Simulated scan of single mutants.
Amino acid sequence: MTQQSFIFRFLDPGDALGEILFGLVMVLTFTIGARLLSGEAGVDAREIGVAAIGCNIAWGVIDAVFFVLGKLFYRSQRTRFFRQIKGAESEQAALLAVQEEFGLDEEPLAASPEDQALLYQSILALATHSQPMRVNLTRADFISALCVFALVATTAVPAVIPLLFIGNSWIALRVSNLLLVVLLFVVGYSWAHFTDARPIYVGLSVMLLGLVMVCIAIALGG
């Protein structure tokens, strides 16, 4: 099993993309922001690299905790919904609630009204004849949280390496920034394979979007 397939067993590709981009943008904000605020003479690339690693590790922990809390909230919300379905005053009210919860209006799927009605009736039948389970965290949840931490904390490590091992801060920062921009493109290019979009366009779009987010963060003092 490859590392990529392992991660996608526990994380949705869209969630994984978000965590990777978060880690990359965080380091890019450090490297560009520090140079702009300190000037060429006052920049210590090694200190920036150490600070960036520490920041990404901290935010990796925070994101992992929020991920677990989100899982608990989602399951608790679902449990509450299914209990409400079982206690609905009429089948029509229950069907309406199911339609609102599982509606296909925002899905890229052109389903006929008859097929949608069958889907809602099937969900209602399943909910009616089943018992909501107690909400618990699972082993998979903790592995998923570990994946979240790893993506945020380690994704930008290649771009931090020049800051730690290249003695000339001016060169180190530019090599690091170049690597980060390339990584943004590679992430977008790879993620496009999960969609119908053209990889080259997605790669360029993600790269430009990442740069825009960095500029916004720097402008706001982040």
Rank of each mutant, 00 (worst) to 15 (best):
V202L: 07
T2M: 00
R198V: 12
R198I: 10
V43Q: 02
H193L: 10
T154K: 03
P113E: 04
A34P: 00
D196S: 13
V148C: 03
A172N: 12
F22A: 11
L72F: 12
I123V: 13
V202C: 04
P162T: 08
Q99G: 03
V206D: 00
L37G: 12
V152Q: 04
V202M: 10
L151Y: 06
S90G: 03
S190L: 12
L118T: 08
A217Q: 09
L173N: 09
T155G: 02
E91F: 01
L124N: 06
A58V: 06
V98C: 06
A217W: 05
R80C: 01
F82H: 14
K71N: 14
Q92D: 11
L21W: 05
A117V: 00
E47Q: 07
G39P: 04
F30M: 13
P158M: 03
R198S: 07
F66W: 14
V152S: 01
I53G: 01
F81Q: 14
I161L: 03
I85W: 05
M26S: 12
L209D: 03
T155A: 12
Q92N: 11
Q92A: 07
A88S: 15
L36Q: 15
R75K: 15
G60R: 13
A192Y: 05
H193Y: 13
G203E: 08
L119H: 05
L184D: 03
P158S: 04
G42S: 03
P132K: 13
V43I: 04
I218E: 10
V187G: 05
I171K: 11
I85G: 03
F73S: 10
V182R: 08
D44Q: 02
L11E: 10
C215V: 04
L211H: 01
V160Q: 10
A45W: 01
V157W: 03
D115K: 05
F82K: 11
E89A: 05
D115E: 13
F165I: 15
A58I: 06
G23Y: 06
G49M: 08
L36R: 12
A64N: 13
G49D: 12
A117D: 15
G39K: 07
L24N: 10
G203Q: 10
A45C: 03
A117F: 01
A52H: 02
I48E: 06
G60F: 04
V212Q: 05
W59M: 15
D63W: 02
T79N: 14
V152N: 10
Q3T: 15
R174T: 09
V214G: 08
S38N: 10
L17N: 11
G203H: 07
S176N: 11
A110M: 09
P113H: 01
A219M: 08
G70D: 15
A93T: 13
A125V: 00
L37N: 07
Q131R: 15
P132M: 09
F142Y: 15
V206N: 02
L151D: 11
E19P: 00
A88E: 04
V50F: 09
R46P: 02
F194Y: 12
S76T: 15
Q4Y: 06
L21C: 08
V187I: 13
R75W: 12
Q3R: 11
M133P: 00
H193G: 02
S130M: 08
S122P: 00
R9N: 14
Q99I: 01
V181K: 05
A145E: 11
H129T: 13
F30R: 11
N136P: 00
Y74W: 05
P132S: 13
D12A: 10
A156G: 08
A153I: 02
L209H: 01
